[in-house]
C-alpha cells in the first residue's frame, strides 16, 4: 500500500462532528457511493417504466393535452391485426433465436483445439458479434438481394431461385432471424469456449476410462459442467430475441405489408409515426412487451437470489 503509516501517538479527536462521522462512517458510506448511480438510474430507467404504464391510459400526440381514456388503448390493441402479427413474429423470434445456443456449442466444440493459429480462428469466428446490427442488417439485405445477392447467385448455380427473401411475406421474418442468428451464434460460441476451458479434465479422463465418448460423453459429462454457460446463453438470447429492432428497421422497415414487424418495432412505428405521434397507444404496446420480458426477468432474478442464498 502507498499509505503513509499513521503516527501511533494519537491525540484525542478534537471536534465532536468528526467523531460522529467516524462512528457512522461505515453506515453512511455505502449510500454516498450509491447516490450518483442510483439517481441517474432512477430518473432514466426506473421512473420511466412507471410513466409508460401511466401514459398507456391516455391518448396523447406528444404536443397537445393528454386525454385520459382508461383502458381504451388496450381495447384497441385487442382488435388490432398488426398487433397479433407482431406478437406472432415475436414468438417465432423467441423460438428460432434459440438455435443460436446449439449452433454456438457446435462451433465451440469444433474450435476447442490447440492447432497453430486457432486463437485467430476463434476471434474471426467471434467477429460478427462486434459489428453493429445496422451493418449486419445492410450486409444481409445485400446478401438476399434478388438481382445480385450472393444467396441467389448460389441458388442460381443449382438452377433454383431467385427468391426475394425480404420482399416475400412468407420468408421475410425467417430471413431477418437468420441475419440475427449470425452474431448471436458467435456470442453463444464464445460463452461455450470459455466454459469448455474450465471443464474438469479429470472427469473427462474418468469418462474415457468408462468407455464414454462422442455424443454420450458430451451429454453426460461435458454438458452438465457447461450449465453456467448455457444459462447465460439462454438469458442473452431471450433478451436479444425480444429486443430485435435494429435489423427489422434496417432490412425491411417492418414490411412487406407490415409482415416482419415485432412488438419492439411496432411500438416505435406507432409512437413516432410520420402520420402523427400516438404515445398512448405506443406505451400500451410497450407495456405488453415489458410484461412478456418481465416473466424472464423474474425467472432470472429468482435464480440469482437462490444462488446468492447458497453462498
Amino acid at each position: 500500500m502507498t499509505q503513509p503509516v499513521l503516527p501511533t501517538t494519537h491525540v484525542a479527536p478534537p471536534a465532536v462532528a468528526r467523531s460522529w462521522w467516524r462512528r457512522n462512517q461505515i453506515r453512511l458510506a455505502p449510500w454516498i457511493f450509491l447516490a450518483p448511480g442510483m439517481i441517474f438510474f432512477l430518473f432514466y430507467v426506473i421512473f420511466p417504466i412507471f410513466q409508460s404504464f401511466q401514459i398507456s391510459f391516455y391518448q396523447w400526440d406528444g404536443l397537445g393535452e393528454k386525454t385520459f381514456v382508461g383502458l381504451y388503448n388496450y381495447e384497441e390493441l385487442y382488435y388490432d391485426d398488426a398487433f397479433y402479427t407482431s406478437l406472432r413474429n415475436n414468438v417465432i423470434w423467441l423460438v428460432l433465436y434459440m438455435l443460436a445456443i446449439p449452433a454456438g456449442l457446435f462451433i465451440a466444440l469444433f474450435l476447442n483445439q490447440t492447432v497453430v493459429g486457432i486463437r485467430l480462428y476463434k476471434s474471426l469466428f467471434f467477429f460478427p458479434f462486434v459489428i453493429s446490427q445496422v451493418v449486419v442488417g445492410l450486409v444481409f439485405s445485400w446478401f438476399y438481394d434478388p438481382t445480385f445477392g450472393l444467396l441467389n447467385t448460389i441458388l442460381g448455380t443449382f438452377g433454383a431461385g431467385p427468391i426475394n427473401v425480404l420482399g416475400d411475406e412468407r420468408y421475410v421474418t425467417y430471413g431477418i432471424i437468420a441475419a440475427g442468428l449470425w452474431p448471436q451464434t458467435a456470442y453463444c460460441m464464445i460463452l461455450y469456449l470459455t466454459g469448455l476451458n474450465a471443464v474438469d479434465p479429470e472427469q473427462i479422463e474418468a469418462g474415457r476410462l468408462d468407455g464414454a465418448k462422442g455424443a454420450r460423453m458430451l451429454w453426460y459429462v461435458v454438458l452438465p459442467q457447461l450449465k453456467p454457460a448455457t444459462f447465460i446463453a439462454f438469458v442473452v438470447t431471450i433478451i436479444g430475441a425480444l429486443r430485435s429492432f435494429d435489423l427489422i428497421s434496417i432490412m425491411t422497415n417492418g414490411g412487406p405489408f407490415g409482415e416482419s414487424r415485432v412488438l419492439a418495432f411496432y411500438m416505435f412505428e406507432v409512437a413516432l409515426s410520420e402520420y402523427g405521434f400516438r404515445y398512448g397507444y405506443g406505451a400500451a404496446i410497450a407495456v405488453v412487451l415489458f410484461l412478456i420480458m418481465m416473466v424472464y426477468i423474474t425467472f432470472f432474478l429468482t435464480k440469482m437470489y437462490r444462488d446468492e442464498r447458497g453462498r
Partner: peptide
C-alpha cells in the same frame, strides 16, 4: 436487483418518457 432488472428491460418501455 433493481439495477439488474432495469438492465434487461425492453427499450420501448422507456422510449416515450425518456
Amino acid at each position: 436487483f433493481m439495477f439488474v432488472a432495469g438492465n434487461f428491460v425492453p427499450f420501448q418501455i422507456l422510449m416515450v418518457p425518456v
